[in-house]
Design a binder for these strands. Sequence first.
DNA 1: CCTCCACAGGAAGCGCAGGAGT
DNA 2: ACTCCTGCGCTTCCTGTGGAGG
Length: 398
Amino acid sequence: MSKKLDELFSKIMHSKIFENRDMLRPDYIPDELPHREKQILTLAKILAPILQGQRPSNVFIYGLTGTGKTAVAKYVLENIKSRKEVSGKMATAYINCRYDDTDYRVLATLNETIGIRIPFTGLATAEVYKRFVNGLDNKKISMIVVLDEIDALVKKCGDEVLYKLTRINTELKNSRVCVIGITNDLRFTDFLSARVLSSLGEEEIVFPPYTAPELEDILIRRASKAFKPNVLEDGVIKLCAALAAKEHGDARRALELLRIAGEIAEREGKDKVTIENVKQAYKEIERDREIEAINSLPLHSKIILAAIYKLQKMEKKEITTGEIYDTYKALCEKTKIEPLTQRRVGDLINELDTLGIINAKIVSRGRYGRTKIIKLSVSDKSIREGLLSDENILRVLT
DNA sequence: CCTCCACAGGAAGCGCAGGAGT
DNA sequence: ACTCCTGCGCTTCCTGTGGAGG
């Protein structure tokens, strides 16, 4: 056994494929951001007044996932911070609102970036805000606040903090704050009240999706550092770029694809990454996503899915809502779980449909009523793996 | 043309958890 | 500690409906 482990570890230590696989990870920020020159310049122009101690306009950054919004923001901030004109006179805060998704946590994090400790609970939100204003004013600095995935915060808590943050400059005598909001929800402004919109949206930058050739260029640059020389078969990068471009030009997706393909090749002990590996990686990512989607379903949705799976195994060609409900109820009985009503199950079936796990179509069969015919749209294997991690379901399926 | 099946899906309301105000 | 409020998952009750068979 220990010999096998030895082999495994030395295989990874002496990878024939990777030089530095971290270069392909989503959180890696490269030294240069190709094909985003325009956005970098625009953002830099907007923020430049800070070098003269003036307050820059607030900025709104839009763009789908994997279009480089976060990377560009961080890149420009780093550059500004490193200039000697502002040393000691400015601070930056980067907040991911997906993790800090309440007013309190956002304000607490802001306090911490200027060196004020805040207990994780116990203070009124207004008090935390007051401490931030006072603390910041005493420091006599300019501050740039980046709120990434800002839509998550607003959808959960409303735009009260944003309003306060954009108005904070009226309360400050010696310091000033500039807010950069980043969102991948293009209809995000619908959630904002007009008062916030006018002050936060002083400037807007849109990040279009990368095109296939752009993705290819990015991948080539990254791959040259991430992989050993000459391990990529011809066309590997082109295929990764093409597959990711099809899914709204997501660079993160493209890099993931390349990394997984490399890992597959490595696992198989090859010294080349082939086109076939990319296709396998694509399937693997797809499958992992399916399994994850199924796995995170609430209990009753899982039972419904198990019912559909069972019916499909019985080689029924047309599965209807009524049949599913009967099977579902039987499964519930076996597990001693209180079944939901058919009305509710109907809604859950619709949810499974929107998630893309099943396919439901309304049909009218005349005399024989109006119903939905339902088909699974993920592979049997994904269903089994996704469901079997749940022991409740395991018991009824076997 | 009308009927009537087997549901779809809207409306209202209920109980509960969790947060805000006091 | 207590009320009040709100959102969410769910139920109950309901009206609506495409088209095969009469």
